[in-house]
């Protein structure tokens, strides 16, 4: 439900980067989207299409999402594991003392011009 709001932030940052680089039109935007970032890539690209086509600089510009797998590390046994499958509880030792290493990203990786 929040993807449209996020799209407005992407548009703002992409336009800023394009202006800084003297670019008039952007062909594609590549995002890094973490598996547990709570952003749904399909919704994001749908919202993007609607909003980007209203901007001269971004008309027809594609948005592509790289999905970043989520990994968590356990502070009790120092083992790493995939977050989506096991959640916050370490599958190796059962501890709750775990921290997300990656998979929370909502970042603009690059733009193609």
């Amino acid at each position: 439900m929040h993807e449209l709001g996020i799209v407005f932030y992407i548009i703002r940052d992409v336009k800023k980067a394009a202006l800084e680089n003297g670019v008039e039109h952007v062909r594609a935007v590549v995002m890094n989207i973490g598996e547990v970032s709570t952003v749904v890539p399909d919704y994001l690209t749908d919202c993007w299409r609607w909003a980007a086509d209203k901007e001269d600089m971004l008309r027809g510009c594609d948005l592509r999402c790289n999905i970043i797998p989520a990994r968590t590390v356990c502070h009790s046994c120092n083992e790493e594991y995939p977050t989506v499958r096991f959640g916050r509880k370490c599958p190796h030792c059962g501890s709750d003392d775990t921290v997300l290493l990656c998979g929370n990203e909502v970042e603009i990786k690059e733009i193609e011009v």
Binding site: D13, R27, E105, V106, K109
Partner: peptide, 13 residues
């Protein structure tokens, strides 16, 4: 096609 690397979280600003 020229690629410009940005690598920036949209929450950063």
């Amino acid at each position: 096609v020229k690629v410009i690397e940005i690598k920036k979280s949209i929450f950063e600003d």
